[in-house]
Structure formats: structure tokens, C-alpha cells
Design a protein around this nucleic acid. Structure first.
Ligand code: FES
Ligand code: FES
Lengths: 141, 141
DNA sequence: TCTAAACTTGACCATTTTAGTCAGGTATGT
DNA sequence: ACATACCTGACTAAAATGGTCAAGTTTAGA
């Protein structure tokens, strides 16, 4: 199981944004240069972040993005959800009573995969952008 | 992030095996039928499980596979390692001091991804085949 | 006013990974 | 001998990934 670049970039970009948006909006160009992420790709990512109300945009020259919420209220869950980075431990539909590939019942390890999914999501729910900022300050002392 | 079928099947097949290997070796054909996994694919998977000494094989008619260890000593970690299902939260090499795409330093969220990887692996290290057998008995009462 | 910076949005694409299949073995219990 | 079942490598269709490209719109500042 691997984390996709899209999810990783989204978090990286938001941490960068959170650090610099105190005074002026931050342009994607700046984030792109600082973090080494393709500008075109960042645009895709921020399009989604905006639709999910995690950031606000300011158009025009000197424009850019600012956070739309307090860093403490932006959990990794929210970010990942916004960019469609989701945890999937099973193939079959969650709600369905049926199992994978059309079987009548769920597989014998189904409980395990549910547990795993919860385990991972818990991590994402408990981590906010604020935590990442603090964490980084600490490790830079 | 998603779990691949190969990893999921490996665990399913081993749970099935653990249930039935008390008296005779279990043939892949049986596992295939019971769990609805392609026989050809199972062969690939068991080839790796055998190389990693998680199962033993008995050839010929009435042959099949048996566990090579106590179910309590087979952790999910071991199974996933055997079939090359690994947790990757970053793109860059672990050992290297350099970051992704050749940058001089690690990215600003690197600590986070390391934490995440540990968080997930901890789950796998603490779960044994025995746990899965017990767990399933419980939920079938 | 004009222009460049910066956001907006959709379409497109090469590469890699996944989830298998296929084929042709080899070993062995009956 | 022969059927059963393991052994092993090669191959492949489909999906996902990690982007790029193009054609806008909006607005600050010269
Ligand atoms: S994972 Fe689909 S049935 Fe359990
Ligand atoms: S993920 Fe590669 S540098 Fe942090």
C-alpha cells in the first residue's frame, strides 16, 4: 500500500501555505519553487482544495491562496478527502452485503480489513495542519 | 492508499489454510474454490510464501500446503513481506539523505510520512494468523 | 488603459502497476 | 502409468498514477 504523490503534495503545499500566509496570499508559483512540485499539478490540486473550502483564492496580480480555516481545524482527513486520496483496504463496496466479485457473503478476513482501515483513518483524523507546523518547529530547534 | 489484492489474497488463503491443515495438506484447488481466488494466481502467491518459509509444500496426489510455523508466529508483517506487499508513504529512498526527485534535503512533511508508515506497520506487526482465527471464531458465535 | 501575474478548468497522455492468464514443466501417491 | 498437484517464467489487458498542455478569466499595478 502506498501513499500517492497527489496526497503527499497536497499536505506539503498546505504546510508551506500555512507558514507563509500570515500577511499576503501565497502564489502557487512560490509553492512550486519552494517545494519542487510541478506548477500545473499544483493547480489541479488547489482546484480541489478550493472546492472543498480548505483554501480561498485571490485572483489577479499579487494574488494567490490563503487558508480558509484555522490550521487546527484542518485535519489530514479533510485534505485527503478533498483530493480523493482515500484509504481502501477492500475491493468490494462498503455498504453492500455482498462480497468481492459478486460473492454472496463477505470474505473471511473482512473484519481485519475494516480494522485496518479504521486504524489508518484514525491517524489522519488526529493530525491537523497545526500539529505539522508545531512539529516542524520543534525539530528545527 | 489501497491494499492490493495480492496481499489480501495471501492473508485470506493462509487463514483458510490454517483452518483446514490439522490433518492433511490443503490443496490450492480447494482454497481457490472456497475463497474464490484464481488458482493460477494462488500458485504465484504460494510460490513466494514457500520461499519465505511461511508454508511447506507436499507434492504429488493428495499433496498441498501446510503451515511451516505456529499460527501465533506468523504475523501479517511476515506475510506481506513475503508477497512484496509493502507500505510506502514516500517516493524517495529511505536510507538516502537526499529528498524526492534529487533534492538536497528531505521535504518539510517527511517526519509525518515516517510516522504514518510506522503507525501502519505497527498494526501488521501486532496481528498474527492466530489472532485472525480466534477473531473469526468469536464473530461466528 | 494595457499588460503580466496568477487563478480556472478541462482534456489529454506516457508510464507504471495491478491482477491476473497461459503454458509447459516436475514430482509423487495410488 | 496416470492423475493430481506443485513449480516457474513469460506474457498481457486494464487501471491507476503522475503528470502536461491548452485555452481561458480576473485583477493589480505601471
Ligand atoms: S474484501 Fe471484499 S469481501 Fe472481504
Ligand atoms: S517524501 Fe521524499 S523528501 Fe520527503
Amino acid at each position: 500500500m502506498k501513499l500517492t504523490s497527489k496526497g503527499r503534495y497536497a499536505v506539503m503545499a498546505l504546510v508551506d501555505l500555512a507558514r507563509f500566509d500570515n500577511i499576503n496570499p501565497v502564489s502557487l508559483r512560490d509553492i512550486s519553487l519552494r517545494q519542487g512540485i510541478s506548477l500545473d499539478y499544483l493547480e489541479q490540486i488547489f482546484y480541489k482544495l478550493k472546492k472543498n473550502e480548505i483554501v480561498k483564492s485571490i485572483r489577479g496580480t499579487q494574488g494567490g491562496y490563503v487558508l480558509n480555516k484555522n490550521p487546527n481545524d484542518i485535519k489530514l482527513t479533510n485534505i485527503f478527502h478533498a483530493v480523493d486520496e482515500k484509504v481502501k483496504t477492500v475491493q468490494c463496496k462498503k455498504e453492500s452485503k455482498k462480497g468481492c466479485n459478486g460473492k454472496a457473503t463477505k470474505c473471511i478476513t473482512h473484519n481485519l480489513w475494516d480494522e485496518l482501515e479504521i486504524h489508518i483513518n484514525t491517524f489522519f483524523e488526529n493530525k491537523s495542519l497545526k500539529d505539522l507546523l508545531n512539529n516542524n518547529k520543534e525539530t528545527r530547534v
